[in-house]
Amino acid sequence: MSKDLAVDVHDLRKTYSGGFFWSKKFEALKGISFSVARGQTFGLLGPNGAGKTTFLKILMGIISKSSGSATMLGKPAGSREGRKRIGYLPEQLRMLGHLNAFNALELYGNLSNIPTSTVKAKRDHLLEMVGLSEWGKVRVGKFSKGMRQRLGMAQALLHDPELLILDEPTDGLDPKARAEMRAIINKLSDDGVTVFLNSHILQEVELICDHVAILDNGELKYSGPVEQLDSFVSQLNRGASGSTELVVEFELAGSIEHVNEIFPQTTMQQYERIAGDANQHRFKVSLADQAAIDNRVDNLRKRQVSILGLSKQQITLESAFLQLIDDPQEKSATLADPAPLNPPASA
């Protein structure tokens, strides 16, 4: 284990037991391994039930691991020494309702062994930073969900943590507040704080994080820089020939017979006529590389088919995520299926 790693996980497993005499077992983490270097802004992605919160709770010592190893800032996950240096914002935070914002900061600061005087010195700045400067003496019970999240963020920063673990930090926030929260995280990141973000809002991760890990069904699908994700996905999608496949959208004008000579109907995806004109076509095809695209363009021109438009599809985090979390069998079926690709139901 390196001291330069903020989080280091090896073959981490967690099995829940339930039912009559704990006879039913559910494996929430199936031996995941990855690491987060200090200074990174790291996003942990995964659909609901993927094991993200389980993973974070193991890191924080809220639940115990079944096997494997996990460290935070060089200390065993869940250890008190580790927790001293971490700021944590849990998912769906409900602070004790009898506290006002000042009291809450004092309580959670004291729990992190920060003297009340220090808390008092810092609290105005922190509340201002999260946009609650006018709400210090208001009972937390009267706070909206978003305000509670922001107060949670403030308490997580009280003791100047080296690692900030945020579980769905923008959940419940309006777009403006989300932007503000992102700004805070970006600033912290700029200040050298390692941020570990657990979120299912992919765009947010894409905007904030430089590294991501994708969990699905307890298994780690990817861990690495965001910018390498498309090549990873591309490699993953490489066909049987071993070549990378590119998805290209064509907008053509000409007879469909000529088009089909170049693109057999079975290879066309999301075919549609442009403006209802029988001689104008829009569709996508998967091609091996740029040479293949050039070859198709040459052949189309030979057959007097006009090229109204041509665009090479970029692999977004969302599409990569969707491709990664899909079942491999389903994925291959989807790729072979000419039916239109549906966008994800939600982020």
Partner: peptide
């Protein structure tokens, strides 16, 4: 104290 929403935060503290 054992309310799930507030307990996680308490348990994350170094106590």
């Amino acid at each position: 104290m054992f309310d799930p929403g507030s307990l996680s935060l308490l348990l994350s503290k170094p106590i």
